[in-house]
């Protein structure tokens, strides 16, 4: 499993590992959704979606990416697994395109993805650690 849950007194952490920065974007989304929904079986909707992020650094890019997924869920009750991902790690830019899918029933609520104790290390293997405010 490319992600593990880390213990935290009040909240929860996720550590995600991948072989490339693009895979880390995908696996971070998978791990995040698995935490929120448990098993995710996808029902694709016709709605196309694009996420474009320009950040200050790579850590902000990953925290923003997961918070963007939370925003999509909060406002549309959808999940987003992009089909194409372009990442420029030096400029901290991300372009993700794909379709939205109908969200399964929620198992665990997440308020936000925080920067507290967050780290991203360049690879391979690429590694991301974030703590979630629950």
């Amino acid at each position: 499993m490319p992600w593990v849950e880390l213990p935290h007194t009040a909240d929860a952490g996720l550590e995600i590992t991948a072989s490339s920065v693009e895979d880390l974007v995908t696996e971070a989304a998978r791990g995040f959704y698995a935490f929120m929904f448990g098993e995710v079986s996808l029902v694709r909707s016709a709605e196309e979606h694009t996420v474009e992020l320009e950040c200050m650094d790579l850590l902000e890019l990953f925290v923003s990416w997961l918070n963007e997924l939370l925003y999509i869920y909060d406002t549309r009750e959808k999940v987003f697994f992009p089909e194409t991902i372009e990442v420029d790690p030096k400029r901290a830019r991300l372009l993700a395109k794909g379709n939205l899918h109908i969200a399964p029933s929620l198992a665990r609520a997440v308020k936000a993805v925080t920067y507290g104790g967050a780290e991203v290390s360049e690879g391979p293997p690429w590694r991301l650690r974030v703590y979630l405010d629950l």
Partner: peptide, 9 residues
Amino acid sequence: VHWGYGFPI
């Protein structure tokens, strides 16, 4: 008090 994020709770 307990472990939070940034500030402790």
